[in-house]
Design a protein around this nucleic acid. Structure first.
Lengths: 192, 192
DNA sequence: CAGGGTATGTTGACGTCGTTCACATGAGTC
DNA sequence: GACTCATGTGAACGACGTCAACATACCCTG
């Protein structure tokens, strides 16, 4: 369990080394593969199977870490939203995260949710819970669950459409503006 | 240019045969690969390169077809929305499409938009335009572009979250209900 | 109707990938 | 000091995307 590669044979902490390497590759846009991760960890390809049953298991672990990161990004240095403007900031934070780490974002959301990874399911649940708590504060009279889902869908949809190039803009500021404007327009829409 | 495989050598219309085969595999949940498509078309793997420069090019063509299909699903047998309830139907239609053809939906949206495929870009643009026209009718006083983006983001986010298992429900009806409820809650939310 | 050019399809090969199986190593325990 | 079990290695398999060289047959021109 020591963390140093003394012998050259046993790595020391291959599991976290794999995750670190994989995360780095995901964030630097390099193509991601089990073998590439093993190469970067200085280890044979099959060594990873001692720590992850599958490629999917590795991805699941990365996804869980990413979801926790996203949650942290949305909460750190920020109080729970109390106004619609705060909600806009939250959505912008969400979209920003996706655009800053698109490959990770895809891993977090794009493959069918593996129920086997409890940490991952819980991390996703925390995000929904955060949204719900926010909505309760901003709209105390509304249906909290419905509002939380709607808010998540809005932010997530914006993130996906921008990450996948279905919506485009020239600068991050323009994107942030667009997100805020769109949310405000929807909240202000008057049904007649 | 004949469409029948007379000789056994030249296929006749391999391009559309490939697309048909690929679409079928995508919809029946089979793993999708160039080689599998060529097998199903009864042709050698490299034959496809006469009609698509790339695996990506094949996917782009499928995506374009899927986007046109989605557009058709959202317009056929349905007038342009005039009420918030109609908007709910539109969103439900969008999410339904994604859940009925998840693999196709992923191909349509999940890979970076290939600018090389003009048809694809245009098909995506049509969907945005449809949303915008709908929003103008339902909310004549609102910012049409912002509302269109917000609506698209909402529907797309819901679709992604359900397709990827981040939101779950027991039945399609429950999902439709949830989509409608969430949209209504957001539109009804009163900023104070 | 002959012949040649071109669109279309085939064969074989390369490098990469995920994964399995048999084996090697070495850290910690009696 | 020997045993054991977690951890790492190596060679191999089949599938994949793609390329280069070659084969076929449709179509147009003369």
């Amino acid at each position: 369990m020591s963390a140093s590669p003394k012998s050259g044979y046993h790595h020391g902490d291959l599991r976290t080394a794999s995750l670190t390497a994989a995360m780095r590759m995901l964030e630097s846009g390099e193509p991601f593969s089990l073998r590439a991760v093993s190469r970067e960890a200085g280890v044979s390809p099959t060594a990873l199977y001692r720590h992850f049953t599958d490629r999917d298991a590795l991805e699941s672990a990365l996804a869980a870490e990413g979801l926790r990161d996203l949650f942290a990004t949305l909460t750190e240095g920020r109080d729970l939203p109390t106004t619609a403007v705060d909600l806009g900031d939250l959505a912008v934070g969400y979209v920003d995260f996706a655009l800053r780490r698109p490959a990770l974002f895809r891993v977090m959301f794009t493959n069918a949710c593996d129920e086997g990874n409890a940490q991952r399911v819980e991390a996703a649940g925390q995000i929904h819970a955060l949204l719900e708590a926010a909505m309760v504060r901003v709209f105390p009279d509304g249906d909290a669950e419905a509002l939380a889902s709607a808010g998540w869908a809005f932010a997530h949809g914006m993130a996906c459409l921008y990450v996948d190039g279905k919506l485009t803009a020239d600068s991050p500021e323009e994107i942030a503006d667009h997100v805020r404007t769109a949310l405000a327009a929807m909240l202000a829409a008057q049904v007649h």
